[in-house]
């Protein structure tokens, strides 16, 4: 069963890629500056945060779960790490602390789901409130400012014309792809999401696999938070509002099935870029925000229909 799915994934990715090319071609046709390299770099940069979150989300969705708490996890790790940075802690320690907070939040989600036997949607809905509350309580609602420039420059640099966030996301994607396609963990994720009972009988460590997925998602949420903090020079407790929905949208456009067992890193990346390109192009065309929202919704549904057609019977 898994083999069949692995074989038809590239076809699905080709479909997403085709959609991306179509969107780019349309915008390039109507807006002369859309294809300028500066604008293309803009699109990648603006998609990178969502892509980073969406990669973690994809791993969880493949395992049959969902993580609604990514935004608040990002906010909590951002404010904790930023307070340490502002207090003069060496930047790399501040960053590691932020990542540790994110991974811990993910582990809490995973343990409640895998060992507590609770539904992922409900658990992460609960922690969505809890982590947001902790971030607000910790800061009293105020942003943390005075981020040292050394830390900011780590993520503000460019390499070969590509902004650091884009490069980081490329590396993260490559690692996630290897994890999913070349390691046992990837097989476990697909197996657990495809048929949990069968996986358990076949000897897959189901609980551990789930906790791992949520820990990775938490870690990636805090990595995205570090990028945002460095870019904005401030950490806000309200950061990350609605990130979960954007990430789910990217994964879904990229072919992940919310029933589990299906999804891929390449597709999700393309999905994130599609969403970023839509926003960019529609802004260049001076389309008002309400219609941008409408267009995004239509693209998601269209992608689902294409999914249905290319896959045949689901």
């Amino acid at each position: 069963m898994t083999n069949v799915k692995l074989r038809d994934l590239p076809v699905r990715d080709m479909g997403t890629l085709f959609g991306l090319v179509l969107i780019f071609a349309t915008f390039a046709f109507v807006s002369p500056i859309f294809m300028e390299s500066r604008n293309l770099v803009n699109i990648l940069q603006q998609s990178s945060i969502n892509a980073c979150i969406a990669i973690g989300m994809t791993l969880i969705i493949i395992s049959g779960g969902i993580d609604l708490s990514v935004g608040p996890v990002a906010a909590l790790s951002a404010v904790i790490s930023a307070s340490m940075l502002a207090a003069g802690v060496p930047p790399w320690i501040g960053m590691l602390a932020g990542l540790a907070v994110g991974i811990s939040c993910g582990v809490v989600n995973g343990v409640l789901i895998a060992y507590g036997g609770l539904q992922p949607f409900i658990v992460t809905l609960g922690t969505l409130s809890i982590y947001r509350a902790l971030a607000l309580i910790y800061t009293g609602g105020n942003p943390v400012l005075n981020i040292p420039s050394e830390f900011r420059s780590w993520f503000g640099n460019s390499l070969a014309g590509l902004p650091m966030p884009v490069i980081i996301v490329c590396i993260v994607s490559a690692l996630a792809w290897v994890l999913l396609r070349k390691t046992p963990i990837g097989e476990y994720l697909l197996a657990v999401g495809g048929n949990e009972e069968a996986a358990r009988i076949a000897g897959v460590p189901v609980a551990l696999t789930k906790v791992t997925a949520y820990a990775i998602s938490g870690g990636l949420a805090s990595l995205a938070a570090m990028i945002v903090v460095a870019r904005l020079g401030a950490a806000e407790p309200i950061l990350g509002n609605l990130w979960e929905l954007e990430a789910i949208a990217a994964a879904a456009i990229g072919g992940a099935s919310l029933l589990g067992g299906k999804g891929g890193i390449v597709g999700t990346l393309l999905g994130a870029i599609i969403l970023g390109a839509m926003r960019n192009g529609l802004t260049l065309l001076n389309v008002q925000a309400f219609y941008q929202l409408l267009a995004t919704g239509l693209v998601i549904l269209l992608a689902m229909l294409v999914d249905r057609l290319t896959r045949g019977r689901a």
């Binding site: 500056i33 500066r38 509002n241 925000a289």
Partner: peptide, 25 residues
């Protein structure tokens, strides 16, 4: 030309809009 973010909390979305408008000149 007036553009706006989709909701009150969409901070990165608003940043993206501002950057995109800049490149439009």
């Amino acid at each position: 030309d007036l553009q706006a973010a989709q909701s009150e909390g969409d901070q990165l979305g608003q940043l993206a809009i501002a950057e995109n408008m800049l490149s439009k000149g």
